[in-house]
Design a protein around this nucleic acid. Sequence first.
DNA 1: CGAAGCATTGAAGTGCGTCAACAATCGTGG
DNA 2: CCACGATTGTTGACGCACTTCAATGCTTCG
Lengths: 239, 239
Amino acid sequence: MITAHLRKLRRRTHISADEEQAIRSAVTETRNVPAGRLLIRCGETLNHSMLLIEGWMAGVKDLQGGSRQGTELQLPGDFADLQGFTLKSLDRDVVALTNAKVGLVPHDRLREVTDRLPRLGWIYWSMTNIDAAITRELVISLAQRSAISRMAHLFCEISYRLEVVGGASKNGCDFPLTQRELSECLGLTVVHVNRTLQELRRRGLVELENRQLTIRDRAGLEALAEFDPSYLYLDQHRL
Amino acid sequence: MITAHLRKLRRRTHISADEEQAIRSAVTETRNVPAGRLLIRCGETLNHSMLLIEGWMAGVKDLQGGSRQGTELQLPGDFADLQGFTLKSLDRDVVALTNAKVGLVPHDRLREVTDRLPRLGWIYWSMTNIDAAITRELVISLAQRSAISRMAHLFCEISYRLEVVGGASKNGCDFPLTQRELSECLGLTVVHVNRTLQELRRRGLVELENRQLTIRDRAGLEALAEFDPSYLYLDQHRL
DNA sequence: CGAAGCATTGAAGTGCGTCAACAATCGTGG
DNA sequence: CCACGATTGTTGACGCACTTCAATGCTTCG
């Protein structure tokens, strides 16, 4: 049920059987949510966190003027709102991008777990710091990379992150976002996303059809994106 | 010495005398650093964190091609690299923007403190989450706001953050950045920063000279920026 | 006093946005 | 199972916010 989450953690550090059991016990309930559902509203008081088990979700901010910007993408195994564990509310909405299955983790339950096993608190603190590193990399993309390089970077990041949880093969992965959603992640217009996607295909780097991403030339894609995965802290076995 | 830091914490929650003493004791050494100094190199192994006492610093990423992007600004009272406490390295450099005074906090010392007073660990976890919220707001600025609105937003944010630590008056604050550094924070060219600054002045919103920011029309500035300070979690007394 | 960095201005170029139309696909109810 | 509206994807023409390049004056500080 939460195997993706455990894979994500174990990619960074050792998790004992005791710790695994504690994590499992913190999930009190799982829930299926349909694509498009608004799961958490910006500012609302939270007393549980949501662990994404299946599907994709995103943190988004809606602006006056109708535009929407994605600030982070959640893939299976990610917590959507670990920030809410300490701050008790989010500064963004969380929406389901696809049909999804989430595990509910009441804060008081999580608190018991991290009190009893402080190392787990430490690990989750680390995870929120990795989330922050991902957001910083998005800052770089938005400020410094061209549309095509930005999109290439997103594809690289997602394939790395999905690979960790077993959701990507060597040459691609599921990619259920519409071009509109992609544009919201990248800070571009739909029109320009469409053209940029065509250019990536024309260059023989990726193909994207039927909600399936195929990476035809990974080296070329990573070069275009200037992708350096170290910000994902994937090979960190010393937490 | 660390009064700015304590003001920052106390703006969000209660800090007992015992906790204050523990924080003070964690700072083993203070150090003066000159403007421009590279303090932490991306990826290097860290065994202490740096608390900014006086001056401004920034987290920056240098890109191939020579451009540099600021990912966060540290003001007095901020930790520059609390992320390093859990992850043991940063995904960005940290540089001093002005002459600065920093307090060194060895990680094992900080670890002792948070072990003995877990509530402090909780509070610092919250602080890293607030840092992440600030970075997310930067994402919004870069992706969705025009140059002038983006700059207005930065001025609003800084005046709020400085006000918390006693570094801002009602109509302005110190602002020691050059236009080049400002351009690196905003993801703009120096030329455009210059013109945008003139436009802000022409509209009677702010003035910036002699490293001094004067806010002539705060309501107008905040309206232009669509500034909403809730992402700073300033009125959170329930941590 | 000279050099190096910083601020300012103008002219010209471009990457991406905006607007508008249409085609393809999906989902739903009849 | 088909009909039909809604969503998604695609294309073209045009505009503009910001960049780029280049030059010049202004500080600052050894």
